[in-house]
Amino acid sequence: MSGMTLTFRGDAGMAVDMSALLPERLAGLTAGEVAGLPLPCGGGVATVGGMFEVSAGDAAEGLLIRPGQAVLHRVGAGMASGRILVEGDAGNHAGAGMSGGLLRIAGNAGDALGGALPGLPLGMRGGLIGVGGSAGDRAAERMRRGIVVVDGPVGAYAAGFMVAGTLAAGDGCGPHPGFGMRRGTLLLGRAQDEAPEGFADGGTRDWLFLHLLRRALEGSGSWFERMGTTRAHRFIGDLAEGGHGEILAVA
């Protein structure tokens, strides 16, 4: 895609906070200007240019990130508009607190994908996240709106304390899905016979919601588009929260 590219060239394993590098913040800046911006990493602050090779291009047209061996945290966190593509793995808190725009991660995502940054009471409230690989624990935690689609599995506590929105995990999830869920949807690409912990059985049928979701994900290349199903086993909860969230496991 056209736009700006950031290729990591620092030390392997370096933990970087990417939250300042959003298309809306970098729009209109030259490669030189972006290279001079501060970038929190490890125990201190470096410059973007010290950690990344910055190609010419306008980030408003898209931001391509090549992580290499870095652990990039908070990619797209708080993004309001624009497109970010990660050609590789992302660390924790990718897309946390996002309110709009598109974040695509070709590889795996760490914990708290589309979740909430530490200390904040509210999570993602808009936008679309797509992950080609797997995601860690706490995906879509405290989500209020938006769609997160993960082709692989997600870890423990998926859709924890979710208020609304959709998390779709192509290859199932770890323990305690929907912990504290109030509303919203956790869609699992694996069959589920037993109700997950804290959820009541709501029967199996064709669901209108899944038709709408399929339309929303048209062209995304996600597992859900490929699977093409709209029939699922529905579970309602979290009963502990008095919740009316749903876990839909494809039938």
Partner: peptide
Amino acid sequence: GRLRTALAGRSRD
């Protein structure tokens, strides 16, 4: 979670 469910007056079959 089970204790919270009981406090909410609910239970799972």
